[in-house]
Amino acid sequence: MVKTVIFQPAEVKQAAKLIQAGQLVAFPTETVYGLGADATNEEAVKQVYLAKGRPSDNPLIVHVSSLAMVEHFAAEIPAKAKQLMDRFWPGSLTIILRVKPGTLSKTVTGGLDTVAFRFPDCQPTLDLISQAGVPIVGPSANTSGKPSPTTANHVYHDLNNKIAGIIDNGPTRVGVESTVLDMSTSQPVILRPGAVTKQDIEGVIGSIDINHHQVKQDEVPKAPGMKYKHYAPNAQVYIVDPADDWGEVAAVIAQSKEQVGLMATDQVLHAHVWSVQADQFSLGTGVQEASAHLFEGLRDFDNQEEIHQIFCQGFEPTGLGAAYMNRLNKSAGGAHFRDLLNK
């Protein structure tokens, strides 16, 4: 057991020394908080898996603060990948490239010959990487399978006394993890949607694909979030689709004998009369705010033992809505409000 220290952004130098010493430090990004360790220190990286309870065949994203760091570890950087780096870095785009043999351990890559790179849009974390002098791995700083952390308090809740430190930079802006784009193949393909959309990417490099492959039990995923259960609170989440009748939802909640969680936009919350059984959490005014607050709401209800069902508003899966619905579907295990009605 270690004492977990909370650092402010001005104290990054102290956090960087912990990274250099092989310790784990959680760091902020514009998307979610990550759990950092020296990507070149295999023993430190192994501790990341242990602290999270993360499956060992789930590869890690390597966070960098310069193109030179990528060049040191990547076998090559295709011209189209450089175009995307110029356009979207720093930012919410992770790019998978072929790894240069002998530069990173299989603990980082999940045993694959590829590695994922990200240049986060968060100055305290860029300072952390630069001052540590090494790239850092950075899966979400939470217990594996639970909703990702968007505040330092979320990290502290899951990992207190398991990691050396947390850099507190306040709530994250985007709220869902980065887009993961595989550039190690002849045709670029999105493996995980995020704030940088398919349309954004195609506006720079032309046509790309979206992954629809279901990773098998004996198969190693190329990116996080492709194989194992993710983002799930203890309560069962039900997606209320755009075509669903919120009046019906209100009626079902009113008939409940227990408290339920309700996550929806202000427009929905104000348009109906909700029974006392509904504990309400606002998702703001639209998909952008909803994405920023999705994990916060799921965590909020996860801390309420009396909540066994959560009804959460869905959006059209276009643009940022594709990332939002990707996370919500995983959190719900594919369960929709209509499924509950048909039981």
Rank of each mutant, 00 (worst) to 15 (best):
V5E: 06
K257I: 11
A254F: 10
T150H: 03
Q20W: 00
Q131M: 10
V276P: 00
T172A: 02
Q123M: 02
G297N: 09
R299N: 11
Y49E: 06
L159T: 13
N161H: 14
P221S: 05
A10R: 09
Q20K: 15
D339V: 06
V204T: 04
I129D: 07
F73E: 01
I310T: 08
Q259H: 05
A335M: 12
F7C: 01
G194V: 07
T29M: 03
N41I: 03
I136C: 12
R173H: 08
R54N: 02
P59D: 11
P171C: 01
K216T: 15
I6F: 02
F301R: 13
E258R: 15
V25Q: 02
T185Y: 07
F315P: 00
H157I: 13
G111V: 13
A37L: 02
T150L: 13
V240S: 03
N234L: 07
Q20H: 08
S148R: 11
D245S: 11
T4M: 07
S56F: 08
A51L: 14
S291G: 07
T151S: 10
V25I: 10
V70G: 05
S282Q: 09
A332D: 05
A323Y: 03
A164Y: 15
I166D: 12
C312W: 07
D241T: 12
V32C: 06
D245V: 10
V5M: 08
K146H: 15
G284W: 05
H272F: 04
E30I: 04
V155T: 14
A164D: 12
I201E: 03
S148G: 14
I95W: 12
M85I: 15
D218N: 14
F27C: 12
P59K: 05
E43L: 11
V5I: 14
Y228F: 10
Y231N: 12
D168L: 05
G333W: 06
R87I: 00
G206T: 06
H293G: 01
G194E: 02
Q236F: 02
D86P: 02
V70R: 04
D168N: 12
H72Y: 14
W274F: 05
A51V: 08
L60H: 01
A79M: 09
K343N: 14
V70K: 07
R299E: 11
V99T: 12
I210T: 14
P147G: 08
V189C: 06
L24I: 06
E43S: 13
D218P: 03
V134G: 04
E296S: 11
G319V: 03
D218E: 09
I96A: 06
V45N: 00
I201W: 01
P139I: 10
V204Y: 04
G53H: 09
A75G: 11
K330F: 03
